Amino acid sequence: MIADDGERLYRLQIKTARDGRMAGTIQFNTASIHPISGRTTRYHGQIETFVAYHPGTQDFFWVPVDECQGDRFALRIAPAKNNQVHGTRPAEPYRLRTVT
C-alpha cells in the first residue's frame, strides 16, 4: 500500500496488532514466515513504515520500519504494574490521529 502525505509517498505494510505477552502491551509481527518453507522475510528496504491496527482499541499505529528490530514490535498501551518506564515503548507517539 502507498500513503501520500502531500509531500512524499510512503510504502506501507499493514499489520494486525494483538494483545502482547505482557499485560498492557500490544504487538505485531515485523516479518512474514512462509507457511511451507518456513523462510522468514523481513521488510527492510521494501517499505518505509508499518501501520498496525489493534481491533481491541480500534487504534492505528504508524511505526517506521527502521525502528523495528527482530520479528516482533511491541508497544505499551497501559502503564506497567511495577511502574517501569525505562526500556518500554509507549504507544502514544505512534498512534495515528483522526483528521477531520
Rank of each mutant, 00 (worst) to 15 (best):
V63N: 13
I14K: 04
F61S: 06
G87Q: 02
T16W: 09
H34K: 00
E67W: 11
R11I: 05
A78P: 03
Q69E: 14
Y43D: 00
E48W: 01
K15I: 04
R11L: 14
V65L: 03
N29V: 04
Q58V: 15
P93E: 09
A3M: 09
P93M: 10
G87R: 01
D71K: 06
K15C: 07
K81F: 04
Y10Q: 00
R72Q: 03
R97Y: 07
L75S: 01
P55T: 04
A52D: 03
R11D: 06
R39M: 04
L75D: 10
A78H: 12
K15Q: 11
E92K: 05
D19S: 15
F73A: 03
K81A: 15
M1G: 09
R39H: 13
E48G: 03
R95N: 04
P35E: 05
D4I: 06
L96S: 10
F60L: 13
D19C: 15
D5P: 05
G56V: 10
P79K: 08
L9I: 14
R72S: 04
T88Q: 03
M1L: 08
A52S: 06
I26S: 11
E92V: 15
S32R: 01
G38A: 06
I26H: 08
Y10D: 12
D5H: 07
Y94D: 15
R89Q: 11
F61D: 07
A52K: 10
R76K: 11
Y53G: 09
N29P: 04
L96G: 13
A80C: 05
T100I: 12
H86Q: 02
Y94H: 14
H44W: 07
Q84C: 05
F61Y: 15
I26V: 13
Q27S: 04
Q13E: 15
Q13I: 01
V99I: 02
V65P: 00
R89C: 11
A17K: 14
F73H: 09
T40K: 14
R97H: 13
G38Q: 11
P55W: 01
N82V: 04
H86K: 00
I77Y: 13
Y94I: 00
H34C: 00
I36R: 06
H86F: 02
G6V: 04
G70R: 02
F61N: 03
V51A: 11
Q27P: 02
G24N: 00
R21D: 13
Q84M: 00
N29E: 08
P79Y: 08
G6R: 00
N29W: 10
A91P: 09
G45L: 12
I2M: 07
T40N: 06
H34F: 02
G20H: 03
F60C: 09
I2H: 05
V99W: 07
N82D: 15
G70V: 11
T25Y: 09
T40C: 10
V63R: 10
L75V: 14
P90V: 06
Q69R: 12
I26A: 02
H34I: 06
Q58F: 05
F50T: 07
L75P: 03
I26Q: 12
R39Q: 06
Y94V: 07
T30H: 05
A31K: 15
G38Y: 10
D59M: 14
Y94G: 14
D66C: 01
G70F: 01
W62M: 13
L12N: 02
G70N: 10
G87L: 02
G87N: 01
K81P: 00
A78Y: 14
T16N: 13
D71I: 02
P64Q: 12
Q27R: 13
S37I: 08
N29C: 12
E48R: 03
C68Y: 09
W62G: 10
I47V: 11
D66A: 15
